[in-house]
Amino acid sequence: MDVLAALQRRPSLNLFPIENRLSPRAAAALASDAVNRYPYSETPVAVYGDVTGLKDVYDYCVDLTKEFYGARHAFVPFLSGLHTMHTVLTAVAPPGGRVMVLAPDDGGHYATVTICEGFGYEVDYLPFDRQRLEIDHAALAARTAERPVDVIYLDASTALRFPDARALRAAAPGAILCLDASHLLGLLPAAPQTLVLDGGFDSISGSTHKTLPGPQKGLLVTNSDSLAEKMAARIPFTASSSHSATVGSLAITLEELMPHRVEYAQQIIANARRLAGELAGLGFDVAGEEFGHTDTHQVWVHPPEGNTPHEWGRLLTRTDIRTTTVVLPSSRSSGLRLGTQELTRWGMKENDMARVAELLARLLLRHEDSGKVAADVADLARAFPGVAYAGASAAVTAG
């Protein structure tokens, strides 16, 4: 097998809500000598020497992360979203503590309950309003007044609405509030109701390769001095290596995106709303009509009678359209979960979403030949070879 050939990008349309495209500079960092190096560090009994200045890169990445999210503290040693989740939970939840999370049927991450139970925590589910597709704050307030909770770990991986940080704080005033924003990190600059670190979330964390177009990694920000101390004390026992190349790649991503972060987030959301509207107009059953279909990067499509989500997923894959099918809170059954963050990173705008929706309709509703649709998919993908929102230039050609 030619492994290097298999690793190269091929023309395809990426509607995964869990992926994005690195800039050329950020991708180059992953192939640098730092991929196998540790930064300089000292303990009372040891010195880990480094002659290349990697610690400066770490410090720079931390500073950029704090600036990007307006936070007083930031941590970037995590290797993934799950790695971050493990570290956060074990840092802030007391032994045997009560932790509330989203049920998987309500959009919660599939792994959270198993991880919490594995650490010996008592797990309860956050009340969820299935009509509005968001947390039921009144029900939560009643439940926590009756029985307090130690930690709320809000882990939405399938979400059309932004969480309201202040409403959540008011509903659970005594709890530590941790937002797993893996899907939302790149959108938070355009979500002032969620990016609240004083009077809202005690921590915001998550993976850095979804709406945030960085490497596969994790980060955490907080304004809480006490929580920052707990994280600093815990990290040496969960992250023996932060993988220096990914730290550099994340720093480059944040540096390039910094001047465009609000515009980029707003465009992702605008594209998602336009894609949802176009799909609905073509005959697809799209969730969330009551509030404009979506407030985030995600679009949910329910399959019609006679079509299983797996059949749709396989057909889309054969046509070089990358998608996911998962359980949707709007129906509590499997459907298409689409995302517009990578298309936006390519440089697509609202009008381009009509072309994307038409390709999906030709394939899934009109049952056109997948080979013909795939050829048009490739043509559309080739028209957007670079990355937008990367530094001073409007677009940069990707290698």
Rank of each mutant, 00 (worst) to 15 (best):
D155A: 02
L197H: 13
Q131L: 12
E117M: 08
L126N: 08
V113H: 06
G107V: 14
V113M: 07
E122C: 07
L102M: 04
A91T: 01
A142W: 02
L133C: 06
D198V: 09
R166H: 03
V113E: 15
R147Q: 14
G107C: 10
L195E: 08
F162R: 12
T158K: 10
V151G: 10
V92C: 02
Y125M: 15
T112G: 14
L219D: 15
V196Q: 11
T84N: 05
G96I: 00
Y153E: 09
D105Q: 02
F119C: 01
F128G: 15
F119W: 00
D180W: 07
A93P: 00
H109R: 08
A171N: 03
L89C: 04
K217G: 12
A181C: 10
H137Q: 07
H183Q: 00
A159E: 14
Y121W: 15
D150F: 01
M100S: 11
M100N: 05
R143W: 12
H183F: 01
A145R: 14
P95Y: 00
I152N: 10
P94R: 03
N223R: 12
L220T: 13
G200E: 04
H86K: 10
R169S: 09
A171R: 01
L89K: 04
A103V: 07
R166D: 01
L184I: 02
S224R: 12
A103F: 08
P215K: 06
K217L: 07
M100I: 03
A171Q: 04
R161H: 10
G107L: 12
A170N: 03
A141R: 13
A170M: 01
G214T: 11
D106V: 04
G218S: 12
T222A: 05
A103T: 06
T87R: 01
P104W: 14
I204G: 00
F162Q: 07
H137E: 09
L160S: 11
L126H: 09
D150M: 05
R130S: 11
Q216K: 13
H86F: 14
S205N: 03
T112Y: 12
G96N: 02
D124N: 08
L154H: 15
G218Y: 13
K217D: 15
S80M: 02
L133N: 11
G97V: 03
D180R: 06
L168N: 09
Q216T: 14
V88R: 01
R132S: 08
R147V: 08
V92N: 03
G199V: 08
A138R: 10
L102E: 00
C116M: 08
Y153T: 04
F201V: 00
F162T: 06
Y153C: 05
G174M: 03
A91H: 04
D129M: 14
G107P: 14
R161L: 07
G214I: 03
L195T: 12
A190Y: 01
R130I: 06
G108M: 08
G118D: 03
A103Y: 07
